[in-house]
């Protein structure tokens, strides 16, 4: 029987996919289905949450020398 489920398709690279899975494990209910290496199906209303969390996680890895400058 043909089923069509509503959601948001996320296209990304494998590393980002792993990050999203990690976000999902912390606050479950985001990912509806894992489609393949580079695609995920997530809940419609969780899109913004995913983007924000992703931004936070990625910014942690960025070295910002200018911040140090301004403190001086």
């Amino acid at each position: 029987m043909l089923v069509a489920s509503k959601g948001v398709l996320v296209q990304c690279d494998p590393s980002i996919k792993a990050l999203i899975i990690q976000i999902d494990s912390q606050s479950p209910g985001i990912i509806l289905e894992e489609l393949d290496d580079t695609h995920l199906l997530i809940q419609q209303d969780k899109v913004e949450i995913v983007k924000n969390e992703l931004n936070k996680l990625l910014s942690k890895n960025i070295y910002d020398p200018f911040e140090d400058d301004s403190r001086m």
Binding site: A4, Q11, L35, L58
Partner: peptide, 22 residues
């Protein structure tokens, strides 16, 4: 490019199709 790390599309996923032909 950092801002474009993910692309999102709203829509519907079709699954549980009966056979290959369908």
């Amino acid at each position: 490019l950092e801002l474009d790390r993910i692309q999102t599309f709203e829509g519907y996923l079709f699954k549980d199709l009966a056979n290959q032909q369908e």
